[in-house]
Design a protein around this nucleic acid. Structure first.
Lengths: 339, 339
DNA sequence: CTGAAAGCGCTTACAG
DNA sequence: CTGAAAGCGCTTACAG
C-alpha cells in the first residue's frame, strides 16, 4: 500500500525545499530547468496529485457545487442533476448532493452542513414543507454570507437570487387551450395542494384558459391531491360522476393514475376522455396509451442553473445583486392520450 | 453581508488566543468557566460554525462518500443513491456524486479527481465500457492508496473489495422457473450484450432453468440488445416469427418495449404471451399491463453499501483485506403481465 | 535560482 | 487557566 505522496515527501526525497517542488510542478520559470525536470519526473513517477482539500483551504474555493433537492428517485430531478453535472464536469467542478426528503428540517440541516466551507455555491429546489411554512431564513443566511444560490423549479418570490424556471402558468394555459381546440369543454384538473408553488401556477393557467374561452369554471372538476397513495378513490369518483371530456394533470403520476382508474371503471383514454400532463418523464412515454405532456426540459434547466452558478463564481463576483430569472421554454409533446 | 466568522476573528474580538477559543468551543475543561461561557456566547451570537475544509485537512478525513455510477436518470441507480444517502446522513456523511456516463475515461477521471483528498471512500458501479475493456487499474490504484471501495451491482471478480450484489443468476433462474411452472415452454430471452456482468449472469440463470426442466435451448429465442433505440425491430421480428409463450427481459425497458411492440402487431400480454422482467422500477408499476418483476432492492443495496463503507472507515481500519460480498435477497413481484 | 516564512482555519501536545 | 507552537498540504510574496 503506497499512500498518496505529498510535496513534503518529494522535497525530502530530492533534498530540496517544498517551495521548489511546488514551483517546479506548477512549471514556474523561477526554477532552473534541471531541478524543474527532475522534480517533475519524480512526481510523475510517484503519481503525485495535489491534495484537493489543501488547495481548497488555500484558495478559499472548493470547486464544488452543492445541490439540494426534495428527492432523487424522481425522473425530473434526476434529469436536472444530470444537466448540472454535465456543465459542472466541463468546468472542473464536482457536485455534492443532499436530499431534503421534502422536509424543512433536513433542508436546513443540509444547507448548514454544506455552507461551512464544503462548497462554493448552491443549486436548489425547495422542499414542500419549506414552501408550506414560508420560512426561508436558512437561504437568506447563506446568501448574506456571500454564497451564491440558484433556485430552480420550486422557487419563491421571497428570496432574491438567480432562478431557473419554466412559465408554469403559461404552459398550463397552452396545454388546456390545446384541449379546448380539440373541442373539449368539460375539463377536469388534477393538481397538488396549493402551497406547492408550481402546482398553484399550473392551476392558475388552467383557470385562465377556461376564462378566456368562456367556459364556465366548475369547482367540482378540480381535485387537489395531497397523497398519491390514496388518490385513486378521489379520481375514480371524479371520472364516474362527472362525464368529463378531458383531464389536465399537473404531473404524469396523476395522469397515469387517471388512465388506470378509468380502465377499471370501463372507460378508455383517449376515446372517452383525453389526458394531458405536466412533466415529460419516463411514464408518459411508456404508459398505454402514451401520454401527451408539457415538456419540462430538466436537462436544460440543470445546464442553465449550473452555468449561472459558475458564472457568478468565476466572474469576480462583480455585479452583485443583479439577479436574473431564466425561463426555459416548454412545448407540448403530443402522444396517444389526446388523439 | 456578514461573512463567516473564524476562530481568529473571535479570538481577536475577545482578546484571547485562538487556542483558548478553540478549546472553549469544544467545551474543554482546561479553560476557566468564565472565559469558556463568554466565548461560547459570542460564538453563538455570530453563528460560528467550524470550517469543514480546515477540519478535513487537520483530521485527514472528509466525512464524505464518493459515488460513481453510470447514470443517474435511471430508477435503479437513483434508488441506490437514495439508500446511500439515508445512512450517510444518519452518520453525518455527505455524498458527492460523479457520473461515468458509461464511459471508461470519465470513470477514471472522476475517480482520480475524488481520490485526491475529497472523499474518504468510494461506492461505485462499473461503467459498461470499463466492463468491456476489463481495465480496472484506476480502482486498484485507489485501493492501494488505502482508500476503501465498495462495489455494487455491476462488479468484477478481478478486484478484491467489499461488494453488494443480488444473486443475478439465481433470481433469473427463479423468474424463468415461475414461467415454466405456469406451463410456458417457448420462453424468449431479451438481454444485453454479454460484457455487462449482470446481463451475462441473468442469461446464465435463464439457460440453467431451461436445462433443469429439460426444455430445449434455442438460440433463436435469445436476442441481445445493444442499443435501446433500435431494438423495436429486432423484438418485433422475434414476436412475429417465433410464436413464443413468454419473454424474460433483463430490464423493464426491454419488457415494456416487448409489450408495446406486441400490441402493434396485434398480440396482447398476457393473453398471447407472458412477460417477466428484472428491475422493479416505475415503468413496471405503471405500464399496461403492469409487469411482473424481480425486485432489485436498490434502497437496501444502497443502505448496505453505505453501512459497509462507513464501518470500514470508522472501525480503525483493523481487519484489512478481509472483504465480504453481501448478497441482497430478491423476490418476484407478480403483476398482470404473467396472469 | 532556491528557500524560509506566512498563511488558509483548525486542533492539540506542551510550556508556563 | 491561558497561550505559543507545530502541523494538516498547499501556494506565493519576499529574501538572499
Amino acid at each position: 500500500m503506497k499512500r498518496k505522496v505529498t510535496l513534503k515527501q518529494i522535497a525530502k526525497e530530492l533534498d530540496v525545499s517544498i517551495s521548489t517542488v511546488s514551483k517546479s510542478l506548477r512549471n514556474s520559470l523561477e526554477i532552473g530547468e534541471e531541478t524543474r525536470l527532475k522534480v517533475q519526473a519524480f512526481a510523475k513517477f510517484y503519481n503525485y496529485k495535489p491534495n484537493n482539500i489543501a488547495l481548497s483551504l488555500k484558495n478559499k474555493k472548493t470547486k464544488t457545487i452543492g445541490i439540494i433537492i426534495p428527492e432523487i428517485v424522481h425522473h425530473f430531478f434526476s434529469t436536472v442533476i444530470n444537466g448540472i453535472e454535465q456543465v459542472a464536469n466541463e468546468f472542473g467542478y464536482s457536485v455534492i448532493i443532499c436530499l431534503s426528503d421534502d422536509s424543512f428540517e433536513k433542508e436546513v440541516r443540509n444547507m448548514e452542513m454544506l455552507a461551512n466551507g464544503s462548497i462554493d455555491g448552491f443549486i436548489m429546489s425547495l422542499s414542500k414543507e419549506t414552501q408550506l411554512k414560508g420560512d426561508f431564513h436558512h437561504i437568506t443566511e447563506v446568501i448574506n454570507q456571500g454564497m451564491p444560490v440558484i433556485m430552480f423549479d420550486r422557487v419563491t418570490n421571497e428570496i432574491l437570487c438567480d432562478k431557473v424556471i419554466i412559465d408554469d402558468k403559461y404552459a398550463a394555459y397552452e396545454a388546456v387551450q390545446s384541449l379546448i381546440d380539440k373541442g373539449k369543454k368539460k375539463i377536469a384538473l388534477v393538481t397538488t395542494v396549493d402551497y406547492v408553488s408550481v402546482g398553484k401556477l399550473r392551476t392558475d393557467g388552467y383557470t385562465k384558459a377556461l376564462l378566456d374561452n368562456n367556459i364556465p369554471f366548475d369547482d367540482n372538476l378540480i381535485i387537489k391531491i395531497e397523497n398519491i397513495d390514496t388518490c385513486e378513490i378521489i379520481i375514480g369518483k371524479l371520472l364516474e360522476d362527472k362525464a368529463i371530456d378531458a383531464v389536465f394533470a399537473v404531473n404524469e403520476l396523476f395522469a397515469v393514475t387517471c388512465i388506470k382508474t378509468a380502465n377499471k371503471i370501463g372507460l378508455t383514454v383517449p376515446q372517452d376522455f383525453a389526458v394531458i400532463a405536466f412533466t415529460d418523464g419516463i411514464i408518459s412515454k411508456y404508459s398505454t396509451p402514451t401520454i401527451t405532456t408539457v415538456s419540462q426540459n430538466g436537462l436544460k434547466m440543470g445546464n442553465k442553473a449550473a452555468k449561472m452558478l459558475i458564472d457568478r463564481l468565476e466572474l469576480e463576483e462583480t455585479e452583485e445583486e443583479n439577479y436574473t430569472t431564466e425561463v426555459i421554454e416548454t412545448y407540448l409533446i403530443e402522444r396517444e392520450s389526446t388523439n
